[in-house]
Design a protein around this nucleic acid. Sequence first.
DNA 1: ATTTATACTGTAATTATATACAGTATACAG
DNA 2: CTGTATACTGTATATAATTACAGTATAAAT
Lengths: 201, 201
Amino acid sequence: MKNLTKRQEEILNLIKTHILDLGFPPTRADIARSLGFKSPNAAEQHLRAIEKKGFIKILSGASRGIILNDSENDQIPVIGLVAAGGPILAEENVEKTIPRSNNLLSNDIDYYLRVKGDSMVNIGIFEEDLIGVSKSANTKVGSVVVARINNEVTVKTLIEMSQNKVVLRPENENYEDIILDPQVEEIAIEGSCVALLRESI
Amino acid sequence: MKNLTKRQEEILNLIKTHILDLGFPPTRADIARSLGFKSPNAAEQHLRAIEKKGFIKILSGASRGIILNDSENDQIPVIGLVAAGGPILAEENVEKTIPRSNNLLSNDIDYYLRVKGDSMVNIGIFEEDLIGVSKSANTKVGSVVVARINNEVTVKTLIEMSQNKVVLRPENENYEDIILDPQVEEIAIEGSCVALLRESI
DNA sequence: ATTTATACTGTAATTATATACAGTATACAG
DNA sequence: CTGTATACTGTATATAATTACAGTATAAAT
């Protein structure tokens, strides 16, 4: 899917806003009016370009017949067991996807990760819970993070992180702190946990 | 809001389905075609009736200008502190509402209740968590329930419930079981907890 | 150097759509 | 028994909306 130009993006956003506000797409004339075009044909041609790039579908003959093609963008993957080695978001790890809902939980969730084991029960993270993970949220000491240690993915609290020492703490007195030397072990912080979903109590 | 007739409901559902399928409402002709009317005016008059009953709004002059008036139905209230005495869902208790999202969590959530206190930490229910409550889900022994005891709302595990004894258990060793006689105390089970949301970790 | 994409104006025709008006028929309420 | 709601047919028309055609102009790609 090719990139949209600035103007095309503006029009796509206008369509989305119109749908959000009124529940149906705008007409060519609506678009022209909103953006100050003097001809509805300007809108028409933009729509054609946007369709050609795959962002919308135009139903010929139907008034307001603009269908958005961004349903995938609106889905958040739920990651089950992470196959060792590959990236977390690899398709084989995706258990299902759930629609993003702006107001429900923090918006910057990149994926949900299904929790395995009981190493975080003390802070209320239980087996089978879904953790909302943000790749961009800044991880600081004290954050609950998704870490990859030698190709295995785990959820722990980040206690210390320096050039030659990383400490990850399970929140369960039955487990010991994981102390690692990043110069020896392969370790990466994949993201921060920003939300939690439990589908059954 | 008056009740719709069977036929009117059929038309309202058609509109909803059309929007779900294509992203915009049907025309009068679309409706007539779908239901076998020979005149678009049949659809028009049904729409007027449905509007009069408050279920939709018709924008005059706009093609497909049908706005659904069921945004409230699609919002789940989030209940903060429950004022003593009144019903849980009383407006003054509603902190905000969040859009219902079919696939995200169990669909039969009637409201979310913000958890106060630490009486359920052992099963991973923490202060400030949002509990998804279903009024209709059958509550059995072992369920986590929302109970109202003498006008105070609380979340506990239901341990026993008979004609002369109700036992509610906090899931925290610092608290004692609550043992009540329903013939003396006023006690009602408001619903079952079927899901959990945590907005920050 | 020529094509292709972007970004519009301006006009106009065709078709899609809302909507008015005139009926028919049934059922229910006051 | 008269009004009002429901549930349509059938025709017609104004207007809403798509969309074709003919241009102008600029920038990037081949």
